[in-house]
Design a protein around this nucleic acid. Structure first.
Lengths: 123, 123
DNA sequence: CTATACCCTGACATTAATGTGAGGGTCAAG
DNA sequence: CTTGACCCTCACATTAATGTCAGGGTATAG
């Protein structure tokens, strides 16, 4: 199928499909006229790519194990687990930092409310 | 004082101080030779700017209330609270999304461990 | 005078996936 | 042959604070 059809089927933009091609994630064959020709399996492959992107993985990370997970079960692709482990560590660090900022913000908002109450309405 | 001295005193790079100037956060007077001349109060102002940047606020948001908080108490600058409220909402949304990804990652990692265990070492 | 240590502006790079537009080729229906 | 709906590549824009470099001015110590 052509790129436009794959885009409609998957809900992924033509631009993104071309980007996946560029990044080596999903490389269609080319017709004589230069058009990308996708196999029927491409639809599932796009969904797989989207799944990993939604986990916050980069195209580079996905590319490092995509061929394997499309071939055999994810559990037996040895590149996957380390990527997950690293991503999990990053996520946890980010959550901690955001929780720090959140507490900080909440304290400052409470202080503002307290100070306004202490001072009271002026009229 | 000149920009280099302020940079050393605050630990903020010269590049960033020029950026704060450009963004209207901290505008020094100029000597006849064009050099930025910072008042002694600039040091505290830089620390204030850093404090808000560390809360994840943008220079634009900071600029919207910085003059006020440098003049009177933060609690009585009415622009501050809405900015905090909005930032808090953003942070909470980000934390939720990260927690979703985190759960997803943990489940997938557990699945991998389970499947490997089920299959067992092949030798 | 010169070396050195400052200062200035302007501009590009950084991240990563996606949007958007220009300029142009392909193809099928009319 | 023309129109319209596709497709192609190339390239710039997006976010936001900061790093870095080029090219050049200033000021002080020797």
């Amino acid at each position: 199928m052509k790129i436009g059809e794959l885009a409609v089927r998957t809900g992924v933009s033509i631009r993104s499909l071309r980007y996946y091609d560029e990044q080596g994630l999903l490389t269609p064959i080319r017709r004589e006229n230069g058009y990308r020709e996708y196999s029927p399996f491409a639809e599932e492959q796009v969904r797989t790519i989207q799944l990993y992107l939604n986990l916050g993985l980069t195209t580079e990370q996905i590319a490092s194990f995509l061929h394997c997970v499309l071939t055999i079960k994810e559990a037996f692709c040895k590149e996957v687990f380390p990527v997950y482990r690293q991503k999990l560590a990053e996520i946890e660090a980010q959550i901690l930092q955001l929780q720090n900022i959140k507490m900080n913000l909440e304290e400052r908002m409470q202080s503002i409310l307290d100070e306004r109450k202490t001072s009271g309405p002026e009229d």
